[in-house]
Design a protein around this nucleic acid. Structure first.
Lengths: 220, 220
DNA sequence: GATCGTCTCCCCCGCTCGGGGGAAGCCGGC
DNA sequence: GCCGGCTTCCCCCGAGCGGGGGAGACGATC
């Protein structure tokens, strides 16, 4: 059973490009296209794709709104892979918070795009920097980890959140962090949740990975 | 209320040195000494120290046996800080598995020793490489992270365990790892538990930290 | 043959974690 | 004044995690 994909982008050229790249894979099938986020909901209901490759910037309804709408109104929703042109697109960050499962740069190589679709289809998040870097590492240079650093900057952690992340990256539990900062564990939980949301991490482990990958904490 | 410490080492000179270093701290009090592991149990019961600084190599009963004995027979047991001369002492690894809370090199600087005692007294583990490195980083050079690398080598992970750790370091959950390796989640749990035990990590986050700190996985 | 280590899977159980809410006080900008 | 961001804390709750056991299968080694 192939992975079914719905393409959502206002530029026909981009849709054609994605279709060409994805349809070349035997295990991936492009089941539909849409030119705007407003058309997504009915198409998702009708086609029930595994993955929606969604542009962030679109005329009527942008990718953020569309992501939110899909996740809110569709039961057993598809995975949302947000597609963007810019590495530092703040809309992407919004989309991640809205519940998107991954993001992908339009200038990514075909192999990267295919890989990203497969990964999110398998239920793994491509949100957090580590996965992005993983892709880059697996498919040749990629040029260091600008994406990781960008994601960390885009996160814009508050002072307290950064402090909490540093302690997380030392292996402390919430209770230990609370003791160290002389606050309640509930407070720490709030900060940890904020950090996870901002970094697009699913759990503290992914957050710590992101911290290492971005250079937020130094390894050696 | 100061942290109370019981010193256990067969060499009087080492005991004297530890006593001198620790007693100089206003918040640390050395409440007793023992020359062998065999004498530890009754002393712990009598003195109820917060921390036991325990040599690994001792004539009658070594630090591993003594650690096991204390943790098994004493209720609300003290923290065990294993003291050793060699970085690659395989006895240390045994002691960690026996339940020790941290290990410390005899050639550590006074400040490191004091810090280690305070940390384990606070309930934080000094088992895993990251904490060791943290100490080294906080108190001047330390020369990279030989301890972390040593700990990783000492761990002697099996091929499967190493594979699991690599996936953990990519942020995968047990279920995801199971899917990736085509095995059951229970199997993954077994491997994860083995990795945690061997690395002296409390949870997967600490294991991933150890992986980064030791160079087991590359950050940038 | 017996033993050991590895890999696989199973049980039960308690706890931490993380999401979902909300709410208060503070400060600074509009 | 009002509003928004940051920090602090609270509730409930489900799920994943990790520890404690055990157990069978396989291959290598003794």
């Amino acid at each position: 059973m192939p992975v079914t994909v719905l393409l959502v982008d206002d530029e026909p050229l981009v849709r054609a490009g994605l279709r060409a790249v994805l349809a070349a894979q035997p295990d991936i099938e492009v089941v539909g296209e849409a030119a705007d986020g407003a058309a997504v909901i009915p198409l998702v209901r009708q086609l029930r794709p595994d993955v929606v490759a969604m542009d962030v910037r679109m005329p009527l309804m942008d990718g953020i709104e569309a992501t939110r709408a899909v996740l809110r109104t569709v039961s057993d929703p598809p995975k949302i892979l947000v597609v963007t042109t810019f590495e530092n697109d703040e809309y992407v960050y919004e989309a991640l918070r809205a519940g998107a499962d991954g993001f992908l740069l339009k200038r990514a190589r075909p192999a990267e795009i295919v890989h990203a679709v497969r990964l999110v289809a398998e239920g793994e998040s491509l949100l957090f920097p580590a996965s992005v870097r993983q892709l880059a590492a697996e498919y040749g240079d990629g040029g260091g980890n600008p994406a990781a650093r960008a994601a960390m900057e885009r996160a814009a952690l508050t002072e307290r959140e950064a402090e909490v992340l540093r302690l997380m990256a030392r292996g402390l539990s919430n209770a230990e962090i609370a003791g160290r900062l002389i606050v309640g564990t509930e407070t720490v939980k709030s900060h940890v949740s904020a950090v996870l949301a901002k970094l697009g991490a699913r759990d503290r482990t992914q957050a710590v990975i992101a911290a290492y990958e971005s250079g937020f904490v130094a390894p050696g």
